[in-house]
Design a protein around this nucleic acid. Structure first.
Lengths: 133, 133, 133, 133
DNA sequence: GTGGTCTAGACCACG
DNA sequence: GTGGTCTAGACCACC
């Protein structure tokens, strides 16, 4: 599993990890019963502290997405896909709503928003392709 | 000036205040030379701590949007409209980009995003009308 | 609020704190809306690390027992008494069941258990009085 | 010998095994000189890792309960009955005391405890009969 | 002052 | 090797 951490986007690191694991499950990149990287591995890979990864995993465990097996590691739970698929758009929707709310309250038009979305989407798509190349 | 505070959307309260003042200037709701509410009044009105409002005003002063006039309070500076109009879409754009980036990385399609935007925009518009009524 | 930590009884420190807060609420020692000690104060008082107390408080917040007020502290939630009273005997019952199960499986008689309970209860009561004196 | 493992009751698995061997000796279910199941057999039967069983046996050997005989396996030592009978009630007593201590500190009455004990004992007895049937 | 996040590093229990 | 707990100490945002 690949995990991108963006320090300074306002979202705590542990929450970024939680969201990305959930997206990965929702998109079928992580399957039921599959092991996820050990806390130490993911910490190394993302250059984040072990405890931070550990907290993310613990939260996911409480949410029923992960199951810890003593001395073995953590695996995706059976109910994880259901939970994560439900959350897939919701996670984005909530953040989006907050932005749109501010826009609407401050006299930005829906047309301006649509333009911003398409512009930014286009540019981010380009960036992504550049990164991959 | 009406100020909406949304605790728990991740943006610090003082920054929410700053943004709303800027939007108000950009939209012509606050004019050059006009007094803005006193720290104490805005704090009462928004149920926010005085220090928090104070910090927002201080930041705006540093950015050149507000000017303190002894014995009068703080007024909108002459350069404020220019600054704020430049920032009007940029403030939204930055937040939007962060959300879209997460969406793109996690296999959300542009179609899903457009649907979310239109759905949420529609619903927020309804809510706003309800609030006004 | 007084909090006794017993390192080495098998229960993690953060969980001991959570349980004692819940008991305190259930017994009416902590009232709805009342502030609980700050993480730093309780940490000092119990000679436990700040982060450990912090984790306990965070867990209690997730369970709906505590509410954090930014920059002010944490208070007992309105639903806390209900939650905690439900848990009051359950917390003891679960631990007790585990012990009794072992006893039953290993041919300890209910009479022996009753004797043990009364003996130990008597002795602990004495100890407690001695502590208070 | 039948061995019940309850993961998640807080007691390490290796210790649960040790305790059950001791109880079995104290109750005369295992006699002096009798072979106990091989590490591999017990591990299979209880669905526990071989190393975990191995550690339990090693501990029991250090305590003088088991003796390794080359080419034969491990057998109950001559002093085992004495050791284990001494410990029979003590092992339960210690766990019980910890629970009662928490109860007493938190204003649970001895009456509530007695009721809990009788309730749980009754229910566990029923469960045990059901299991046997 | 408050809680929240993060890092670094230690020890333990389990496999 | 795995996850879990705990400590110590730092910085931040908010009141």
């Amino acid at each position: 599993m690949i995990c991108h951490i963006d320090a300074g986007n306002g979202i705590p690191i542990y929450e970024q990890i939680e969201r990305q694991v959930k997206f990965a499950v929702a998109n079928g990149w992580l399957l039921v019963g599959e092991r996820i990287p050990s806390v130490r591995d993911l910490a190394t890979q993302t250059a984040v502290n072990v405890n931070t990864v550990s907290r993310a995993y613990r939260d996911l465990q409480q949410q029923g997405v992960l199951i810890a097996i003593r001395g073995t590691g953590m695996v995706i739970s059976g109910q994880a896909p259901q939970i994560c698929k439900q959350d897939r758009l919701e996670m984005i929707r909530e953040r989006l709503r907050s932005v749109l709310q501010e826009a609407l309250q401050n006299q930005i038009s829906v047309g301006e928003i649509r333009t911003l979305v398409d512009d930014e989407w286009h540019q981010l798509s380009q960036d992504q392709k550049t990164d991959e190349a």
